[in-house]
Write a protein that binds this DNA or RNA. Structure first.
Length: 123
DNA sequence: GAGTTGACGACTT
DNA sequence: CAAGTCGCCAACT
């Protein structure tokens, strides 16, 4: 799961103090300012796992299980494509949210992504 | 412990 | 220009 499977508790050895990776991603995403977006790659790089943007997407996936104020809709891929929209129910929820923030979307893609791009280090 | 999956990214065919 | 392939790294089965 994404949901914690019990059984596993290994008992020990490592208890995650708190899922670092995920928590880290959450915090970064939560800090994305209104009207701004960021990319998986940027976050991955910021986390130090540069190149493993997949992990970011993975972490984001848990986002919905965590239900928090995580604006996952502000995270898009390198092309500014709303790849994650399918995880929002397959509707245009994501697009709507972004547009309501003043971001222009065209063909499920952010227009002038560079203009909206936000750097985690700016946080 | 090994194999599959994944909201990506960049390169190659 | 579109589709396929490899690479990253961590979690899940």
């Amino acid at each position: 799961m994404v949901l914690k499977s019990n059984s596993s508790n290994s008992g020990s050895t490592k208890m995650p103090t708190q899922d670092n990776f995920f928590e880290h991603v959450y915090q970064v995403v939560k800090q994305i300012p209104y009207g701004r977006v960021t990319t998986y790659g940027a976050i991955a790089e910021f986390l130090g796992s540069k190149g493993s943007s997949r992990m970011v997407g993975w972490a984001l996936n848990s986002t919905k299980y965590n239900l928090e104020n995580i604006p996952a809709h502000r995270v898009v891929n390198r092309q500014g494509l709303l790849t994650g929209k399918r995880h929002f129910g397959g509707n245009d929820t994501m697009k709507n949210l972004l547009e309501s923030e003043g971001i222009k979307i065209e063909a499920n893609k952010i227009v002038h992504l560079e203009s909206y791009l936000w750097n985690p280090s700016e946080e």
